[in-house]
Structures are given as C-alpha cells and as structure tokens.
Design a protein around this nucleic acid. Structure first.
Length: 129
DNA sequence: CCTATGACAGACA
DNA sequence: GTGTCTGCCATAG
C-alpha cells in the first residue's frame, strides 16, 4: 500500500517540476533534484516524494538515481527490475555492480542550463561529479 | 511535541 | 574498496 502525501507543499511541487524536466535518456541524482528544488540537503525528502507521487503524477521517476548513479531499490524487487527496464528502453547503459546496477554519471547525467540551475550549483557544488 | 522510517548524501575510519 | 555514523527533509502515528 503506497502512502499518500499532500502534494501542494512548495517543496513537493518544485521536486515534481524538476523531475518532469529531466530529458529522456538523461538521469539526475536525488541530491541534484533536491538542490534544484532549493533544498540541497533534502535528498531523503525527494526519495519520499517520488515513492508517493511518481505514478499519480506521471513522473519519469526512473531517471532519478542515487549519488553514485546506482538504482536505489533493493535488488530482486519489482521496482528494481522496472527501473532497469525503463532506463535501458531510453538507451541508458547500465553496468553491473555488486549491489545494484549503475549508470555512468559522466555520460548520462542531466546538466541543466540557466540561472536557476546555476544557483542550485552554487548551493551544492557537488551535485555534478 | 515526540519518535520512527525512507527509492539519500557526505564525511570519515 | 567497504562499513558506519551523522545530517537532512517530509510524513505517519
């Protein structure tokens, strides 16, 4: 049973908007989305929002990976398989790691341009590796 | 108000 | 490289 949340809070709306902007074939990290939403340290909040709102809002949730470019679902779960399938369908190559599958951030990470993104970069210089 | 939890991130040993 | 600890934010009870 998927928990529901109030999707009207400003942070939630910004997260949803940021995730929607990730282009097909590109990926972002939780920290990156949090920074673009104005809260550089809210990665856990981003994960929570995706968990609750991905389907109901038609978000490209599969394009959000952890800081190492890895799939954050535990292996052998339905979510894990689905995410890997969706990413590969967009042409993203996944490398097998010990615990999960990884996409190469240097190749696939979404690097948004513009003032908003630049501000986010200043807040968290580490969002791009 | 408090504690617990989560598809996290960063720092450090 | 791995394992552990701490900080972060939103939500549930």
């Amino acid at each position: 049973m998927r928990r529901q949340i109030n999707t009207t809070s400003p942070f939630t709306l910004k997260v949803i908007a940021a995730v929607k902007r990730i282009p097909r074939g590109k990926i972002a990290t939780y920290g990156q989305i949090a920074a673009l939403a104005g809260k550089p340290h809210a990665a856990r909040g981003v994960a929570w929002i995706l968990h609750a709102c991905a389907e109901s809002h038609g978000l490209p949730w599969q394009r959000v990976l952890n800081s190492k470019g890895g799939i954050s679902f535990p292996k052998n779960t339905e979510g894990f398989r689905e995410q890997a399938r969706l990413l590969r369908a967009e042409g993203i190559e996944l490398d097998r790691g010990l615990k999960t599958l990884f996409a190469d951030l240097a190749v696939y990470q979404w690097r948004p341009a513009g003032r908003r993104a630049a501000a986010a970069k200043r807040l968290t210089p580490t969002i791009f590796r």
